[in-house]
C-alpha cells in the first residue's frame, strides 16, 4: 500500500522492508507497537516482522507509517 517491499510469507506474520525510512518509522512506532525491527540473518536483513492482527489493529500502525512517509516526502519536495 505504501510502496515498501514485503514478503508473502505463510505464517501468522509479515515482513516489510522500510528501506531508508526505517529509523524514522521505528521511532514513530515505538510508543504504539512491539515488533521485530531487523534480523541478523543475511536472507532477511533489512526486513522488519509484524505478527498478523486484524485490520482494525493494523489501521493506526499503517496510518502512522503513512504519516512518516508523507512527512519525509514533503520535506524532500520543499528542499
Amino acid at each position: 500500500m505504501l510502496g515498501f517491499r514485503t514478503l508473502n510469507g505463510h505464517g501468522n506474520f509479515l515482513h516489510v522492508s522500510f528501506g531508508s525510512y526505517a529509523p524514522t518509522v521505528f521511532a514513530s512506532l515505538e510508543s504504539l507497537v512491539l515488533f521485530r525491527q531487523d534480523f541478523g540473518d543475511a536472507c532477511l536483513a533489512g526486513y522488519s516482522r509484524f505478527s498478523s492482527t486484524t485490520t482494525e489493529e493494523f489501521v493506526p500502525i499503517v496510518d502512522r507509517i503513512r504519516k512518516v512517509v508523507n512527512d519525509q516526502t514533503n520535506k524532500k519536495v520543499s528542499l
Binding site: 501468522n12 510508543s31 504504539l32 507497537v33 512491539l34 515488533f35 509484524f50 505478527s51 492482527t53 486484524t54
Partner: peptide
C-alpha cells in the same frame, strides 16, 4: 500500553 506484534501470537 503497546500492541504486541513481536512474538507471532494471536491476540484477536
Amino acid at each position: 500500553r503497546l500492541l504486541w506484534l513481536d512474538k507471532n501470537e494471536n491476540l484477536d
